[in-house]
Amino acid sequence: MKRSCKIAIALALILGSTQATQAAPKKSYRVGAAVYGLKAEFMQIWVGALKEHPAVKSGLVKLTVFDGNYDALTQNNQFDTMVTQKYDGAIFVPIDIQAGAEAVNKAFAAGIPVVGSNTRVNSDNLLSYIGSNDVIAGEMEAEAVIKGIGGKGNVVILEGPIGQSAQIERRKGNEQALAKNPNVKVVEMKTANWSRAEALSLMENWLTAHPGQINGIIGQNDEMALGAIAAVKAKGIDLKTMPTAGIDGVTDAILAVKRNEMVSILQDARAQAQGALDILLRKLVGPSYKPSSPIWAQYAKGMPWNDGQDKVYNVPWTPITLQNADALLKDRQK
């Protein structure tokens, strides 16, 4: 009796599992995430968040991360690899908006859907794109500094590497905010190549060239803003008299926000990474797929799921404040 019972259960299990395989033709999907490079904190957080996605943890997705090493050709080659190894789908963070298009087209021709994330790529063959609008961030940070200096005075702008899309768009945002405030003058504007050490030297020199005349600092990313802060501190200037802003929300910047030294705007790497995988899975699994990342609930208002069918998803920016700083830091500790 017991034995037949066991057989029945085993049979039921086998039948059940075959039925399940029929409903979803594959048990797991091979997904490649091609990112432009893993040398900066932001992409580290992005990749870390992708690996934390419920679908990756449950084994539904077998994830491979490709480090593009900041080179368009390397990324292109990695797409060749994904095509020959018949990956089911790809998430793409390209280094170059134009050169990346070729890679997307190759994957498209091979029937591999590609979702863009974080940085744009100029291709119609992209299934969807999820990122944050840098123009808005540039405008938000400039407005924060302008407000901090009371709507009039002199500011300096630390720019990203000239020609990179984030630099171009953040500058556009900076300029939009400045255009609305004719009493704010830009006394200096120069690239520090996203680098803290370069921004430190540049700011030291500016403080000498314009003694007592600089009222606020707009850094197009946090690293540069932090470099400028180090220069201001070393000069013995009270940071409260020198409103400073950055973008991205790297850990060091959150700590600086807590010390009341700067304003930073969080670019949500987790939403960009996990959101991209959900959009991709919606395509791979089919209409039955429900997004499993908590980010869709978090941004239900600013970025509705819309069944994963939108061409562009704009992850809202979150200003870092004393209220949310601790929670963000706790999130990073994992």
Binding site: L38, K39, A40, E41, M43, Q44, A230, K233, A234, V250, T251, D252, L255
Partner: peptide, 22 residues
Amino acid sequence: TFIYSDGMPIPNLSMGFRYIGQ
């Protein structure tokens, strides 16, 4: 360097250490 730091910067160095730079 990247392996050692997991790609992350190490912030908040102690004041004594900063003395040699600042």
